[in-house]
Design a protein around this nucleic acid. Sequence first.
DNA 1: TCACGTCAAGCAGAT
DNA 2: ATCTGCTTGACGTGA
Length: 293
Amino acid sequence: MKIGYPCINRSVGCTPNTTFRLTSYSPEKMKEKVRNNLDCLEKTIRFNIDNNLLFFRIGSPLIPFASHPVCKFKWQEHFKEHFCRIGELIKNNKMRISMHPDQFTLINSKKSDIFKRSVKELVYHEQVLNLLGLNKTHKIQIHVGGVYGEKEKSIERFIDRYRDLPINVKERLVIENDENSYSLKECLFISNKTKVPVLLDVFHHSLKNNGESIAESFEEVKKTWKKKDGIPMIDYSSQGKGKRRGSHTEKINLNHFKNFMKKVEKFDFDLMFEIKDKEKSALKAIKFLSLND
DNA sequence: TCACGTCAAGCAGAT
DNA sequence: ATCTGCTTGACGTGA
């Protein structure tokens, strides 16, 4: 099992997500920001390796406006070596990477131009993983999308659209249950039709489910990850104390985590801590697990 | 140097 | 009708 956290490390003193306003776009600015982001990504990856944090999510702003028409800069060519170097670090240390395009990426949108932009965005994410030289166990996770007041039709549209995606995207794509639209059960239905692996978000699942236990859910999800996909990726968080229902906790709740681990100890999976203090909670989890071997 | 309004993109649920 | 959350941050103008 690999433990990790998403997008940002709060200890390394830099961010791999610097960006700029569309109005101030220039190829020079683009180059400057991408270089900064890649430098910081490398620093973050090194921190992760040193601390045995072997699962990491690369944030979408790594290449700002990568899928936007304004971007004519050939970042793929220009930073080829840099990607290569970071990729070697990742591979040599057997790290695993995920990416999570943001909420605007909608495969099942009713509007075809939103779908087209979404494909571009997915292609961008796929290019990053490809330039790093990573195999197909490194994934891109998205939610199913909108409901538009007609869930069955929206699911059918997802399935149809999925079938037409570029093969490179398809090989990387996994779908994740969310807390208000598409539950695990619906993701599994879609997976059954398309063979897309399902990434279980245990916090979302606790908020929207069909009565399945965590162990039952793991059992079902496991079947959707084939050998080429690697072991299942799981997103973990818990309810923030005194905060709105569905709001992520600031720091790991070790009691909740202990309880969770007890229920899934017989499964093999990689675990992403979607917790606000990022690497701190992931490190606490690693410490906790090593003490309880 | 800092505060704070705003930032490419969409949807759902809460207020 | 408008705001907030989503992986939530970071930019950049004005003081």
